[in-house]
Design a protein around this nucleic acid. Structure first.
Length: 452
RNA sequence: GUGGGUUUAGCUCAGUUGGUUAGAGCGCCGCUCUGUGGCAGCGGAGGCCGGGGGUUCAAGUCCCCUAAUCCACCCCA
C-alpha cells in the first residue's frame, strides 16, 4: 500500500467494512455524539463550535506552560497561508472561553451552558484508547461559581453515560482547592518527600518539582510503600474554608439527586487552570488508563486569557474511550438501517423507469435502485446484502400493467400494487416499527441469520 | 522520549531443521439459476511474504537497519 494515514489517526468507516470496530465506525461516532447532544440540550446547553486550530499562545497561557500538553503534546502548524504560530487544539476549554470573551457571550442569560464535539490533537505515542487525533464531547458552563452548577455538570456527565447504556462507570470526585490551598499542599508534599528523596522512583523525583500531587498515584511499588509509611495527608485536609464549603455543597446536591460517586483525594488535574471541584469518570476496559473523561472548575481561566473574570466549569469525554467502554461491556450499538425500498429493473430498457420510480419515492422514504438490469435471482441476493426491506421488481409485465411486484425480504410477503399507490404504501410501511437490519455483519463475528 | 510484541491474499491466519510454480477459511466475482434471496455444489480473480541491506548454491524462513501497527511506561481523553 503506497500511502497510509498518519500515525495515531483513524478512518471512520461505513457499515460492513472489514476493519470496522466501535472506534472506527462512523455510525457509532454519530450515534454517540447525537446521544450526548440529546442529553445536553434537554438540560439547556447550546451548541458552540470553535476552529480546530488556534493561536499557540491561547493554549500556552490557558493550559499552562508546565503541562505535558504544552511541553510535548502540541502539534504546531508552523506555516499556514500567510501566518504561522498556530496549533491544532489539544483540548476544548480554552478555545470556548476565548470564544465566549471574544464574541461578547456574557450578554446571554447567565449562566451560559455550552457544548461542542469534534477532533482534538495531541502529539503522543499511540496505545489502546489513545490517539493523536481523537474526538471529545465537551460541556462548559460559564458565568457561575455556584456549587449547584458543579453538581449539575457531574450529574449530566453521568446522564450521558447512562443514556449510552454504560453501567460499570465510577465517578471519582475530589477538590484541588483554591490556588493558595494547592500551593500549601504542594509545599507540604515537597517538604515531606524531599526528606526521602533517595527512596522515590526516578519518575517521582521529576514529579516532585513539576507536580508533586502526581506522586500520590504513582505506579511504583516503592513510591506507594513510602506514601503508606509517611501516612501522607490528602489534599482535602488543606482546603480553605470557602473551598471546603463549596465542595461539601457539591456533594450534598449529588447525594440529594442520587448520583453515586467515590471521594478520591488523589484526583489531580493535568491542566493548570483548574481549581476546586475536579472529577473523573472511570471504566475498566479502555486500556491502561481507565479515564473516560474528566472535568473541573476553572474560575481563573478567563482572566489568564486576558478577559474579564468569569467563573467556569466543564468536562470532556473521549469519544473513542466511551466506544471502547461500550464494547467492553458488550453494549450493542444501534445498527444501520438499509433502504425501505429497492427498485430493480429486469431489462436494461426498464432501468430508467426504475430510477424514476425510486427517485420519486424518496419524497416519502429511503429508496435505492439498481443501475443495471438484473435477473431476479441476482436482484434478491443484491437486495439482501444491502439490507433492503422491500424489493420492487420491474419487468415487462409490470410496465404493461402499471404495477410493481413487491416482496418483503424479511417476511417473504409478496404483493402487487399500482405505481400510483407506492407513496401511500411506503408511508404506511414507514410507521411499522423496530425495523433493524445489519446489512453486512462483520465477517469474524457473524450474526446468525434468522429464518422467516 | 522509553520498552516489548507483531507484519504472508480484501479479512483472520498457517507455512517444518533455509530447498521446486506460496496455502487455508471467510469475503469477492462467475456458473448451476431467462421472474423469486439467504443454503449447497462447481469454477475464477486476487500475493514485490511491510521496505532496504546482508549471509548463503538457495531466504517468507537466518542477521542488521528502517517503517507501520499493537501493547505498556511517562502523561492524558
Amino acid at each position: 500500500m503506497a500511502i497510509t494515514r498518519p500515525k495515531g489517526t483513524n478512518d471512520l468507516l461505513p457499515p460492513g467494512s472489514p476493519k470496522l470496530s466501535p472506534v472506527t465506525s462512523a455510525a457509532a461516532h454519530i450515534w454517540l455524539t447525537e446521544t450526548a447532544r440529546r442529553v445536553l440540550e434537554r438540560a439547556g446547553a447550546q451548541r458552540i463550535d470553535t476552529p480546530v486550530f488556534e493561536e499557540a499562545e491561547l493554549v500556552k497561557r490557558g493550559v499552562g506552560d508546565s503541562t505535558d500538553i504544552v511541553r510535548k503534546e502540541m502539534f504546531t502548524v508552523y506555516y499556514f497561508g500567510d501566518h504561522g504560530g498556530f496549533i491544532l487544539r489539544p483540548e476544548g476549554t480554552a478555545a470556548i472561553v476565548r470564544a465566549y470573551l471574544q464574541n461578547g457571550l456574557k450578554q446571554l442569560p447567565t449562566p451560559l451552558k455550552l457544548w461542542t464535539s469534534g477532533p482534538i490533537f495531541r502529539a503522543e505515542n499511540v496505545q489502546k484508547g489513545r490517539y493523536r487525533q481523537f474526538h471529545q464531547v465537551d460541556y462548559e458552563v460559564l458565568g457561575s461559581a455556584d456549587p449547584l452548577v458543579d453538581a449539575e455538570a457531574i450529574a449530566l456527565m453521568v446522564d450521558v453515560v447512562r443514556e449510552l447504556g454504560l453501567k460499570e462507570v465510577r465517578v471519582k470526585l475530589g477538590s484541588i482547592g483554591d490556588p493558595a490551598d494547592r500551593e500549601a499542599y504542594n509545599a507540604y508534599l515537597r517538604e515531606l518527600f524531599t526528606a526521602h528523596l533517595d527512596r522515590l522512583s526516578d519518575d517521582s523525583k521529576d514529579r516532585l518539582t513539576r507536580n508533586p500531587m502526581r506522586i500520590l498515584d504513582s505506579k511504583s511499588e516503592g513510591d506507594q510503600d513510602l506514601i503508606a509509611e509517611l501516612s501522607v495527608k490528602p489534599m482535602l485536609d488543606f482546603l480553605g474554608d470557602e473551598a471546603r464549603a463549596h465542595f461539601e455543597a457539591v456533594q450534598g446536591y449529588l447525594k440529594d439527586w442520587g448520583v453515586p460517586y467515590d471521594l478520591d483525594p488523589s484526583i489531580v488535574r493535568g491542566l493548570d487552570y483548574y481549581r476546586r471541584t475536579a472529577w473523573e469518570l472511570h471504566h475498566e476496559g479502555v486500556g491502561a488508563k481507565s479515564a473516560l473523561g474528566g472535568g473541573g472548575r476553572y474560575d481563573g481561566l478567563a482572566e489568564i486569557l486576558g478577559g474579564q473574570a468569569t467563573p467556569g466549569i466543564g468536562w470532556a469525554f473521549g469519544v473513542e474511550r466511551l466506544l471502547l467502554a461500550l464494547e467492553a461491556e458488550g453494549v450493542e450499538l444501534p445498527q444501520t438501517e438499509g433502504p425501505l425500498l429497492y427498485v430493480v429493473a429486469l431489462d436494461e430498457a426498464n432501468v430508467p423507469h426504475a430510477a424514476k420510480i425510486a427517485i420519486d419515492a424518496r419524497a416519502v422514504a429511503r429508496t435505492e435502485f439498481a443501475y443495471r438490469a438484473m435477473k431476479p435471482g441476482s436482484a434478491f441476493k443484491d437486495a439482501e446484502r444491502r439490507g433492503v426491506r422491500w424489493i420492487a421488481l420491474l419487468g415487462s409485465q409490470e410496465i404493461e400493467n402499471g404495477t410493481l411486484s413487491l416482496k418483503n425480504l424479511q417476511s417473504g410477503e409478496q404483493r402487487v400494487i399500482g405505481v400510483s399507490e407506492l407513496a401511500a404504501f411506503l408511508e404506511a410501511e414507514k410507521q411499522t416499527s423496530n425495523f433493524s437490519h445489519n446489512p453486512q455483519p462483520t465477517p469474524h463475528n457473524p450474526t446468525p441469520q434468522e429464518s422467516p
